[in-house]
C-alpha cells in the first residue's frame, strides 16, 4: 500500500538547484535507503518529505493527500524524524526529551496518560537509554544524545520514520541496536522507514530498496544487489570496490578500495 509519494519534485535555493524532478513511492512496511555523496540533496529531500521545506515544483502526497493539507500536529502523528544533529538548549532530563515524542498526542493543557508513559518507557528500553532517564541531556555524550533522540522519535509512534544519518555519531554496537529495533518495527508493525545512510554495507544489510542520488537526481533505484555494484558506486562516489553476497553478515556487502594508489 502506498504511504507517501514524491511527484516530480524540484527544489532550489536562490541561484542553486538542489533537487531536480524527483519521483518516488514509499510503500507501507518497507525499509528504504537514501544514498549519495555529500551535497547530493539527501537531507533536503528528507526535509521536503516531512514538510520542513516547501518544494519549488512538484509535490509530496501522504495517503494520497498533499502534505500542506495536513495540520502540523496531525502530520506529526504520521511521520517522525531522527535528525543528524541534536542539541538541547536547556537541561531537560532524558525522560522529558523522550516524552516530548508524545507531544502530538497530548492536548495543549493535558498531561501524559498511562499509555504515553508506557510507550516512552518501551522506547527508552528498546534503544537502551532507560538507565539514563533522569540524566540531563546536556550532560550526555554525542552518541548518547543521538540514542535519546532516536528513542524520542520511536515514542512518536508514527507509520513513517525518517532517519537523517541517524547513527552518524554512534559506535557499531549502538548503530546495530538502533537499526535492528527499527527493522523489527518495519516487519512487525508495518512501519515505513526512509534513512539517509553513508555506510553502504549498513544500507545493504537493512534496506529493502535503495535510492541512489547524484547531483540532485535519482541516479538509480532498486534492490541492494542491483544498486550497490562497482560501476554505480564508482559513478556516484568515485571509489572502486568489489561487491557480493557475504555469508557472515548475511547480506550483500561492499569492499571498498580504501588505499589510494
Amino acid at each position: 500500500m502506498t504511504l507517501l509519494e514524491v511527484d516530480h519534485l524540484s527544489f532550489h535555493y536562490p541561484g542553486r538547484e538542489v533537487l531536480h524532478e524527483i519521483s518516488l513511492v514509499l510503500e507501507s512496511g518497507k525499509f528504504y535507503g537514501l544514498l549519495g555523496s555529500n551535497g547530493s540533496g539527501k537531507t533536503t529531500l528528507l526535509d521536503l518529505m516531512i514538510g520542513n521545506l516547501r518544494p519549488t515544483n512538484g509535490g509530496v502526497f501522504l495517503h494520497g493527500k498533499p502534505l500542506p493539507s495536513y495540520p502540523r500536529r496531525k502530520l506529526a502523528r504520521e511521520m517522525a524524524l531522527i535528525p543528524q544533529e541534536f542539541r538541547a538548549g536547556f537541561d531537560f532530563s532524558v525522560f522529558e526529551v523522550v516524552l516530548m515524542g508524545r507531544h502530538p498526542y497530548i492536548p495543549r493543557f493535558g498531561a501524559p496518560d498511562e499509555d504515553d508513559l508506557t510507550i516512552v518507557q518501551e522506547a527508552m528500553e528498546a534503544i537502551g537509554v532507560a538507565e539514563l532517564a533522569d540524566r540531563p541531556v546536556t550532560a550526555l555524550s554525542g552518541g548518547e544524545k543521538q540514542r535519546v533522540i532516536a528513542a524520542r522519535a520511536l515514542a512518536q509512534n508514527t507509520p513513517l520514520l525518517i532517519m537523517d544519518e541517524a547513527t552518524a555519531n554512534l559506535d557499531v554496537l549502538h548503530t546495530r541496536q538502533i537499526f535492528n529495533v527499527v527493522k523489527k518495527r518495519v516487519k512487525k508493525e508495518s512501519m515505513t522507514v526512509i534513512a539517509a545512510i553513508h555506510n553502504l554495507n549498513q544500507a545493504a544489510a537493512f534496506c529493502d530498496e535503495i535510492f541512489l542520488l547524484k547531483g540532485g537526481k535519482i541516479f538509480a533505484r532498486g534492490l541492494a544487489e542491483d544498486i550497490l555494484v562497482p560501476e554505480k558506486i564508482f559513478d556516484v562516489f568515485g571509489v572502486r570496490c568489489r561487491t557480493g553476497w557475504n555469508e557472515f553478515s548475511g547480506s550483500h556487502q561492499v569492499s571498498l578500495q580504501w588505499k589510494m594508489s
Binding site: 526535509d47 516531512i50 514538510g51 520542513n52 502540523r72 500536529r73 496531525k74 502530520l75 506529526a76 502523528r77 511521520m79 517522525a80 524524524l81 535528525p83 544533529e85 541534536f86 542539541r87 538541547a88 538548549g89 536547556f90 531537560f92 522529558e96 526529551v97 516530548m100 515524542g101 507531544h103 502530538p104 497530548i106 495543549r108 533522540i149 524520542r152 512518536q156 525518517i162
Partner: peptide, 23 residues
Amino acid sequence: LFYGRDLNIMALGHRTSESLGVD
C-alpha cells in the same frame, strides 16, 4: 503558559520541533 510546551520542544532545535508539530 499557552505556549509553554511548544517552548520546551523548541529547545530541541528547529528541525526536531517542526517534526513534532510545532510551528
